[in-house]
């Protein structure tokens, strides 16, 4: 019975079925499954999708479809983790978002999905995120990594603003910062004082591991 739910959840993610994923997550809670096991099952599924994407067997719409399905189940499981007080193991906690003035979400979503697949705990703040919102999330979640995206040349300097703000509030040394997006280059990343940059989503995952030494 339990395995059936976990297997179903894994399948729902791999078949990009939001509704089914959400329903099965609810059932998992009803059946009092260990929420950490449920989370593991979903992570395995998303990792399989991520690997297939890396091999070239799957494409972007598949990756995002799987992420959406996982996203549909996630709040239910997180609520359960909180309620039961279970301790969640992860590689690290990531706060991610596209900077203020920029509404491009694709690259950021890819990175978040692959980071989740890798075993990071990812808080995706979405698009058009102001500096203060990033800071608040970093404090709230006690994040290890901040990942920022900017697609447009006009909005790239916004990343610098966030870093300045972190310095001002004495948070800069407590967190690793990675940046990406169409408008960002290696030089720019160095110039604004980020810890790392990578042009590709799979590369960003390797970078995240490197930054936290795991």
């Amino acid at each position: 019975m339990n395995n059936e739910i976990l297997e179903g959840l894994r399948k729902a993610i791999k078949e990009y079925d939001n509704e089914k994923a959400e329903n099965l997550a609810k059932r998992a809670v009803e059946e009092k499954l260990d929420p950490l096991r449920v989370l593991d099952a979903m992570t395995v599924a998303i990792r399989e999708v991520g690997d297939a994407f890396g091999r070239g067997d799957l494409w972007l719409p598949d990756l995002v479809g799987a992420a959406d399905a996982m996203q549909a189940a996630m709040p239910i499981i997180e609520e359960e983790i909180k309620r039961t007080g279970a301790k969640r193991e992860s590689l690290g906690t990531v706060v991610a978002g596209t900077v203020f003035g920029d509404i491009h979400s694709i690259g950021k979503t890819m990175v978040c999905t692959l980071l989740t697949a890798e075993g990071f705990k990812v808080h995706d703040l979405g698009v058009n995120i102001k500096a203060e919102e990033f800071l608040q999330a970093i404090r709230n979640y006690n994040a290890d990594i901040l990942a920022m995206s900017a697609l447009m040349t006009m909005t790239a300097p916004e990343q610098k603003k966030v870093i300045e703000q972190l310095k001002k509030e004495g948070l800069r040394d407590k967190i690793k910062i990675m940046v990406g997006g169409g408008a960002i280059t290696e030089e720019f990343a160095k110039e604004i004082g980020a810890d790392g940059y990578d042009p590709t989503a799979p590369g960003a995952v390797k970078l995240a591991r490197k930054l936290i030494g795991r």
Binding site: G56, W59, L60, P61, I106, G107, M110, G182, T200
Partner: peptide, 8 residues
């Protein structure tokens, strides 16, 4: 069209 590998 969207490049379904890189999203650009």
């Amino acid at each position: 069209p969207q490049n379904m590998r890189s999203g650009s």
